[in-house]
Nucleic acid binder design. Structure first.
Lengths: 200, 200
DNA sequence: GACTATACGGAATTCTGATTCCGTTTGCAG
DNA sequence: CTGCAAACGGAATCAGAATTCCGTATAGTC
């Protein structure tokens, strides 16, 4: 179990152990504090020196990208599962709900989605998320439940926007699942309003 | 025209002129680059020394808060207008569209809405935006067009989330007005799905 | 057990951007 | 005109984080 991954192959045993500790610490800190969690804190949490963090991830952005890649793999995995769902519309909804949920659980991911388009696009592309979204959309439209005037590019946008909602403070905190359902209602056929043309 | 505002009263003529130049420069730079536009750049754009910027706004946050306050005044103004609209539902929709639009035009405002809850809440409170949202919601619900299971607190959340959409990059750029309409459809009565309970 | 390539820790350095300071200039009251 | 409080400009300073460096420690091999 916990198979030795590609990048771990050939590392000395202690290096492998430390790398995992760093990743675990970074996951926790970025999830809690967002992308401006500090590397020295990651090191401290991992019970490791800063140098060790930098040996495995030459820059903070590399670390961020590595964590993002992992999240996106899970997301793509989920998309594939939902493509198998008996009800195509529910499959799409659950995919969108899931993308909101993982952001609610991870402020760092929200930050990536909201203000690091490059990181996000790289990660999304490498796992083929775009194609998966396209298929989810097509399938849900064929079944008649998803309004026809939606284009697949709008699904990732919605997913990103939902990240912003999940970090709401003040009187709105805790209401984000309601907003997700509102958006899903807006996506359900028949669309109430003619959508404006893209671009602008 | 351009009446002397409260805070300008009693300033020397050159100080008044400079303050206005600083505000104008800051507006432009923050709108273009978001909140991490730099103070020295603001000074340069305003053709003024950094010291002058700091004399009027002791910290960068003070400057940000001042600009935010102005935007929120306009927003509140707009809310008041829409409370007079013949069609309460259209009034609410236009208010939401407007809040998306001003964010699309100003990255700094998006940043405030998305990651500066304190600034936003202060600004919103001082212009009474919460009450205005409450009234817009009540009116639209009485007219039967806004679904009954929405609570007013959800309007500001939606407004914030739309800010995130407007800065979409990649294949989604330029599509934000479409997403606004989708959300509005989701808000229109009758709501398709039972919304989950708040909190969580 | 000894040897050496790998790794390690963490103080020191570097970078970036906000903020301070102070000698000089200028509006305006008398 | 003068006098001087109010403003100015912008080099210098500070602060917060990322990143480098190097002397020390240790897995893994013979």
């Amino acid at each position: 179990m916990t198979a030795v991954t590609e990048t771990e192959r050939g590392l000395r045993a202690d290096a492998r152990r430390n790398r995992r500790a760093v990743v675990a610490a970074a996951k926790k800190l970025f999830a809690d504090q967002g992308l401006d969690a500090q590397i020295p804190d990651v090191a401290k949490t991992a019970k490791v020196g800063v140098g060790t963090v930098y040996r495995h991830f030459p820059t903070k952005d590399d670390l961020i990208a590595a964590l993002a890649a992992e999240r996106f793999e899970r997301l793509a995995e989920r998309a594939r599962e939902e493509l198998e769902a008996e009800d195509p519309w529910q499959g799409l909804c659950d995919f969108i709900r899931y993308s909101a949920q993982i952001q609610a659980d991870d402020r760092g991911l929200c930050d990536v989605m909201g203000s690091r388009p490059e990181v996000m696009e790289t990660a999304a592309e490498s796992v083929g998320l775009d194609t998966l979204c396209e298929q989810l959309v097509r399938r849900a439209q064929r079944s008649g439940d998803l309004r026809k005037d939606i284009e697949w590019e709008e699904i990732p946008m919605i997913a990103c926007a939902l990240g912003g909602i999940t970090k709401a403070h003040g009187p709105g905190a805790g209401r984000w699942p309601r907003l997700v359902e509102i958006v899903l209602d807006g996506l359900h056929a028949p669309g109430g309003s003619r959508l404006p043309k893209p671009s602008g």
